[in-house]
Design a protein around this nucleic acid. Structure first.
Lengths: 204, 204
DNA sequence: ACCTGAACACCGTTCAAGT
DNA sequence: ACCTGAACACCGTTCAAGT
């Protein structure tokens, strides 16, 4: 470490400070000014290191979400792995401090995580296009589900006075789990139905 | 109309002004100050009429999204109606100026629109719980899909330089249409599989 | 080079006056 | 009662100085 390193402001420290504020005080507390203050610096140097606030949130999302895919088990049927993959993605997303991180133009943070799933699908006999289409459907369904789930099971549920009761949208976490499982199951069944077993199990 | 009506500031005018700004200049342009300015008023009176900004956006969402359900056709099989219902909801959501309107705790704006779907499902023989569960899955899937679709087919698609190319998430509108149809089809098939035809078609 | 204080043009919200 | 100007405590971002 060079002597100057203790005082120099690295991109990674900025991102780490933003992650800290995000997890401690929430999404709305993350500002260029608050991140700078936590680092004991004026907001100006942040702009030369990360560009602007949007780029900072890009970096935060990348750190939180990249490479979340579970590893494949030998000889595991593709629907089993796909289900594990979607479930893993969902828990990762649910653990995230705020869904706004991923929903405003940061879908690309998952591209890296889709690779193992696409590989499993391809090994099962799907073409590249088929594998991408299947992977995309599962990803969109999962991200979309969690986006709604996070606010459906969260504190706020309507304008003052409304909510719960006969509201068909009020959902507790256990119901959400079951609903997610069922939805992914339906999608996997639909995908499987378009891919005859003999093509998908060339070694069976 | 009382003589004072011309000058009095009604809640509806405030909401209408907010909708105008939203559609003309976008979500970020909607502020208590900009809405007040459009009405030629200081921001203060808005607080006594609508409460605060969140309540104003609640009212805007309600005006834009309530009652979007297509009406049922006589003797239409429930999966056909459900598909039309989901497609109608999707186009309504896509026409909306910004997905942030519905994704931050405003899911309840669709509760009214779910009624006709639930009625069709119940008439087809589902129990109340089954109908609500099926309706919820379709609603969540559709809202989640559009939330991702709107930013996937929009202008921004990653940190500068990334995007398109081999990115499995880059999608054009036609592909999104097909993907939505397929996904809803899979869900409807899954729901139908759990509801034997004789129960769902008591008159067949 | 790299940081700072100060500024610009905004926010949501509230308060003490005015009529 | 109902509105206003002014203020408070914030934003993101930029600029002219300082070292």
């Amino acid at each position: 470490m060079s002597p100057a390193a203790e005082f120099s402001l690295e991109r990674d420290e900025i991102v780490a400070a933003a992650v800290d504020i995000l997890t401690e005080y929430g999404f709305d507390a993350v500002s260029m000014r608050s991140v700078a203050a936590r680092l004991g610096v004026s907001p100006v140097p942040l702009y030369s290191r990360v560009g602007n606030k949007e780029a900072l949130l890009d970096a935060v999302a990348e750190q939180l979400f990249s490479t979340v895919a579970p590893s494949a088990v030998e000889d595991e049927p593709w629907p089993d792995y796909a289900r594990r993959w979607a479930t893993g993605l969902r828990s990762c997303l649910r653990a995230a401090p705020d869904s706004r991180l991923v929903l405003r133009g940061r879908r690309w943070v998952f591209v890296e995580s889709t690779r193992p799933l696409i590989e499993v699908l391809r090994r099962a006999g799907m073409s590249a296009d088929e594998a991408v289409a299947a992977c995309r459907m599962l990803t969109w369904a999962t991200v979309g589900f969690v986006a709604i789930e996070k606010e459906a099971t969260g504190p706020r549920s309507g304008p003052v006075g409304r909510a719960a009761g006969g509201d068909p949208e009020g959902v507790d976490p256990a119901e959400a789990d079951e609903m997610f499982d069922r939805q992914i199951g339906y999608l996997l069944a639909g995908i499987a139905a378009e891919h005859p077993a003999d093509r998908l199990r060339p070694d069976g």
